[in-house]
């Protein structure tokens, strides 16, 4: 089973070997409201951990999505660009944003696992 890790900024990354798939959490989408537009990175772009990697917009807000780890973009989710509502209906599934080749797997150690993220979100209220 693939390992999923979470950031305090509400991104998730599913790790399969050296490839990571990145999205935003279900909690994040519930806070954003109806998502109407996304921007995903071009393949080949080099991302730096914690820096802007994609954009998600609802009617009333625009948010940057940060790269959970550094790496090179392999693919942006074009299905998501076509149908941004996927973020709302399947934030942690079909609503993924991009895949990347993970530059430094050690960076994953600093992220939360599912249980820790759950506690973290509950602590926000």
């Amino acid at each position: 089973m693939a390992d999923v890790r979470y950031t305090k900024d509400h991104e998730w990354i599913r790790v399969e070997g050296s490839v990571g798939t990145v999205g935003i959490t279900d909690y994040a989408q519930s806070q954003l409201g109806d998502v109407v537009f996304v921007e995903v990175p071009e393949p080949g772009r080099t991302l730096e951990q914690g820096k802007e990697s994609a954009v998600v917009e609802s009617v009333k807000a625009a948010s940057e999505i940060y790269a959970p780890v550094s790496g090179e973009v392999l693919e942006g989710n074009q299905a998501l660009v076509e149908d941004p509502a996927l973020v709302n209906s399947a934030a942690e599934g079909d609503g993924w944003f991009y895949t990347l080749r993970i530059a430094d797997p050690a960076q994953l150690d600093g992220l939360m696992d599912a249980a820790a993220y759950k506690d973290y979100v509950e602590g926000l209220h």
Binding site: D9, A28, G33, K60, S63, E64
Partner: peptide
């Protein structure tokens, strides 16, 4: 991500 919690 930057969390603009204005989801209405």
């Amino acid at each position: 991500m930057t969390m603009n919690a204005q989801g209405r």
